Computed example of a mutant assay.
Amino acid sequence: MKPQGAENYLASGWAFLPARQEPADAIILTYEIAGQEPTIFEFNNGWFPRPDVAAQIGYHKNDSFLGWTAQFSLMQLPPGEVKITAWALDATTGKAFQLAGSQIIKK
C-alpha cells in the first residue's frame, strides 16, 4: 500500500483462483483491530494486465487481468492502529481467500 497524499492510500497486487484456474472475481480489503474479526471496508476498483504473473503461474488465456488496485481513505478506518489485508473473492463459492501480505496503518 502506498500513501496518496495525506488521507488516501492505493493498494495493489495480483490474484488468481487456483481451483477455478481464473482471475479472482473481486478483491476485498479488510481492517482488523487487535482481538476482533476482520471488517470489510473496500473492494477493488480496477484490474490491469499482469502478463509476468500469468507466465509465472502458467495462465495462458488471452485475459491476463490478474492485477488489481483499490483506493481508500483513512476516513473509512476506525481510530488507532489497524491491520489491512486483501482477500480474493470466488463469487461461485462465496468464499474469500486471504492474499499474502498485510500492512499496519495508524490513524
Rank of each mutant, 00 (worst) to 15 (best):
K2Q: 06
Q4M: 15
Q4D: 09
Q4C: 07
N8R: 10
Y9T: 10
F16P: 07
F16M: 05
F16G: 01
F16V: 06
F16K: 03
P18T: 11
P18Q: 13
R20M: 08
A24K: 05
D25H: 09
I27Q: 06
L29R: 08
Y31F: 14
I33C: 04
A34L: 09
G35V: 10
G35D: 01
G35A: 03
Q36D: 00
Q36E: 07
I40V: 15
I40W: 07
E42Q: 10
N45E: 13
G46I: 00
W47Y: 06
P49L: 09
P51M: 10
V53E: 12
V53K: 14
A54R: 10
A55Y: 14
G58W: 14
Y59W: 11
K61V: 03
N62S: 15
S64E: 15
S64A: 12
S64T: 15
F65V: 01
L66I: 08
G67K: 08
W68F: 13
T69G: 09
A70F: 11
Q71W: 12
Q71A: 12
F72G: 02
S73F: 10
S73V: 04
S73C: 02
P79T: 11
P79I: 09
G80W: 15
E81M: 04
E81F: 05
K83Q: 13
T85V: 06
T85A: 07
A88H: 09
L89K: 05
L89T: 00
D90K: 04
T92R: 11
T92K: 12
Q98C: 00
Q98E: 15
Q98V: 13
L99S: 02
A100S: 10
S102F: 14
I105D: 00
I105T: 00
